[in-house]
Amino acid sequence: MSTVIEQAGGERADLRRLGALALRAGSLLAFVAVLVFFSATAPFFLSFFNFTNVIAQSAILAILAFGMTVVIIGGGGNVVTGGIDLSVAANLGLCAAVYAALIQAGQGDATAILTTMATGLAVGAANAFAVVAVGILPLLATLAVMNVAAGLELVLTENTVLSASTPFLMAINNVGPFGVPNLAWILLVVAVVLILLVQFTPVGLRLQAVGEHREAARAAGLPVARYVAATYLVSGLFAALGAILSVAYLSGSSTGSAELLLGVVVTALLGVVFSRRLVPTIGGTLLAALFIGFLGNGFQLLNISSYWVSGVQGALILLVVAATSVLRRKES
């Protein structure tokens, strides 16, 4: 998909930049318009409490979507043959179950954190092995791994909620400095670190090169396979991080984490429109996650039935993708 853009010549690139600017400005405008609309119609919407809470509630989805975004950046934007990690949500479910089970077994937070991280990494490693070493399509490889992870979660929890509560988990769920929930702080810190890492370090730039121009990256001597494998490990690690936040937020494991998957995919794909070159970026994904969070929250405050939410999300991706594909067709 992105190759079309790169093939475009100089003046076309100008045209494209203009179009991309319009789209990006359009999507940012849409974001602002939604915020303004909700603050005008639902007075509580713009309150500090509500605002920071929405950010906190978006943390888990956003962090999973960060992992997905890293995979897409490294694997290329084509959803079928490029990078995608369908196992993130199931991985989160498994990791959350591991954490809660360890706490219930009387282990401390430190052990639980380490084991959870190891679990997330192991799932990521399975993906990396299947995609990089064996060469299975990412869509397919991560689908298979997803099934295994979901099965292991069921074995561990027998489809029940394992509750877990420790001072550490409660601290995560508390309100932190400046009256902002700790979950929101964690999200912002993770986002800033990841943005710096992906957009501003040599490693990050090389990762983008691997995703966008695989052959060129290979010709330049980059260890392409290692980069792609690393993205799945990162994604696994983020699933584990999301799991710890989820255990804190829900005071235990949850049985419905697999349902997060499509939301994560939508968030990562929607994020593309918030970037200048219409490519996946961490910042774009953050904005998309917040956008979806505010949309759901505004609907709730306006007493609009939550039944509309998934339809609006679906219409949103279609709108965005249709706009980008029309833009891209114009250039070529």
Binding site: Y307, W308, G314, I317, L318, A322
Partner: peptide, 27 residues
């Protein structure tokens, strides 16, 4: 319509249909 008329890739088009379909059913 989405795939042929609007040129949306099938993965995203049908993902959108899935989401909208879920809302239609809930409504």
């Amino acid at each position: 319509f989405l795939i042929v008329a609007l040129g949306i890739t099938p993965f995203l088009a049908t993902l959108g249909t899935l989401f909208i379909g879920r809302s239609v059913q809930q409504l």
